[in-house]
Write a protein that binds this DNA or RNA. Structure first.
Lengths: 343, 343
DNA sequence: ACACAGGGCTAAATCGATTGAGCGTTTTAT
DNA sequence: ATAAAACGCTCAATCGATTTAGCCCTGTGT
């Protein structure tokens, strides 16, 4: 039960495989194949439901119509949602997606790239880990389109689609301040990746703009590798010792652990401790109290990523596109202080 | 910047590509290649960091070391988590994963299968939509291993890994009854797929076992295609009209919409309306009140799926494996009635 | 009548790896 | 001594599609 090949069509049409290939690739005119023959081939091809063998085609042309998607964690709400949009959009252009999660581990990332390379994916969508500069440069050398997302590498000139992390964090922090919170902290990752740095910067900017007193205790950093228990334990300990009245969580899973921690301390979110998180989640929307957050335009992100990649695939250009989308602040109950909550 | 090919190695070693191929495929002994030559080839191969071109290999052997993963919705918490485990496990065996979401739409599913077929994936992991019997049979005909998950097709003899939906639903419902809820309803999908049917059956069995009065109003069915607004609207309307005191939501997204609906009616979950949902979610764990649910063993599911697939890939057998894993009831606050809640 | 220009199509090489058949030499068996 | 087997390796076909070079035919211009 083998598939239908170009030879089968050739045989039935009484022509050579070459001719069939030309016609099916829309080169009939260019290669001066008569209309009669063209039509006949097309008819037979659709009758036999011919679908080209992508392996053979890929071997010959070097194009596999496959994209590699390397995210931090496909099980993370944000990445899973982007992945879905990417898959949908890619499909519209006839591309399939191979994916992998890095767990923010450079070794895993390198491994994934290696595998994808030998599967000849045509283009890459990458949520880079640090120390990936060399690998990205290498892909550029071999002219494989790459679009970074969520974050980019400052020392590498490449396409990227990100959100305005600085502004998002600035707005969120300002919002906390305007709501009257005084002792505001930020809980972020230990990573010095650009998206985290920018969120940190946005936070600091708002902090200083309003003249809040800064000391290193305002910032709590946690390593990605920590598990659930480790995270909640650390956050709980931090909150207990530092007695802040509001926290800005720099990414979604930190926010989730944060909720657990705050609650385990018997504190009321909003009333006792204000809270904003970068990134939205069903949980934040439906939590009681609901959690104010900086929401990323997921659809738009996915669309633009594929967009840029397709442009690059079809007409390689030498200038990198840097798309910075605006996130929106979703104000919810977690930033309402007691007085307001009672109303 | 082409990759290193077997020819490059052959040239450097002063042997033919055939010999190189034999050695690299571990057939040195079998094909009587001398140790000297073998070692030399191996050394050169690792020096050049040779990685076989999977396209060429796939074209020749028909094996691509790629699995196709077809789920209902990769953005859904449950499927995304399984996908991650599957990816991890597959990787351990040198396989990559191509994925796609069906949206429970048979046409989309057919399209995905078509594409995966022409990419020659070696094995399939499928969350089947209905009317997929023919497609699955076809894959069996061409001896492509298939493992169904989450649900199976009663009329098709194939491998599958599912949870004990009946027992899960039975336990959940019994739990509601034991907690003293009297007017219990089930909100499920319109689909008559086996997993839903079993959950329905488990619900009914517990219902009848305890002699609760049954009438068709106990069941509310909603089509998958409905969007968020549609779902909450329908659920809200149903809850308002039927005045039940507890609801069993047959799948995770229904539970999420359910929470929204119950709250929009100003009812207290647990106190006014008890609630259990099939499938766990961060949201259920952290919601206030937290939501009792039937939790699926995601790690185990993913591991077993790949397990079965690998067995089949390595030693095709004629008997189908049917793995039914046990879910666990996570008792939380949403099934505590007022009296207990106050304590 | 003869060169030249399309027009319409095909042969064969190619991508990189795998594999059945086989070739020349040496060793073993009879 | 001679056939058979063992060795150690290679040739060439193959997977299916693409693509370069080019063949043969008809028609046009001079």
């Amino acid at each position: 039960m083998k598939g239908i090949s170009i030879k089968d069509i050739a045989k039935q049409a009484g022509v050579s495989p070459t001719t069939v290939s030309f016609v099916l690739n829309g080169k009939a005119k260019e290669k001066r194949i008569s209309d009669q023959v063209s039509k006949k081939i097309l008819k037979i091809a659709s009758k036999l439901k011919y679908k080209p063998n992508q392996l053979a085609r890929g071997l010959r042309t070097g194009k596999t119509k496959t994209l590699g998607l390397i995210v931090e964690d496909i099980a993370n709400n944000f990445f899973a949602n982007v992945a879905k949009v990417v898959e949908d959009e890619a499909d519209k252009h006839g591309y399939k997606v191979l994916y992998g999660s890095t767990e923010d581990n450079s070794e895993k990332a390198r491994g994934l790239l290696e595998v994808l390379k030998y599967r000849q994916v045509d283009g890459y969508i990458i949520v880079p880990t640090k120390n990936m500069e060399k690998e990205i440069e290498l892909l550029k050398m071999v002219r494989k389109p790459v679009v970074l997302m969520d974050r980019y590498l400052p020392n590498v000139d490449s396409h990227y689609v990100v959100v305005d992390n600085y502004q998002g964090a600035y707005d969120a922090t300002t919002h906390l301040i305007e709501k009257g919170y005084q002792k505001i902290a930020i809980i972020t990752t230990t990573s010095d990746q650009v998206q985290m740095k920018q969120r940190m910067d946005g936070f600091m900017a708002a902090f200083k703009k309003h003249g809040l007193p800064y000391n290193k205790n305002v910032v709590k950093r946690l390593p990605f590798e920590l598990d659930r228990a480790g995270h909640t334990q650390e956050i709980t300990r931090y909150l207990k010792s530092s007695r802040v009245d509001a926290v800005f969580f720099a990414t979604n899973y930190l926010g989730i652990y944060g909720i657990e921690s705050i609650r385990s301390l018997g504190l009321r979110i909003g009333a006792d401790v204000g809270m904003v998180c970068f990134d939205d989640h069903d949980l934040f929307r439906l939590h009681s109290p609901s959690i104010t957050c900086v929401s990323q335009p997921i659809e738009e992100i996915g669309r633009q990523i594929v967009n840029v990649l397709m442009q690059e695939l079809n007409h390689p250009s030498s200038t990198s596109q840097h798309l910075v989308l605006q996130p929106t602040l979703e104000v919810r109950e977690s930033t309402m202080r007691i007085a307001e909550t009672i109303i």
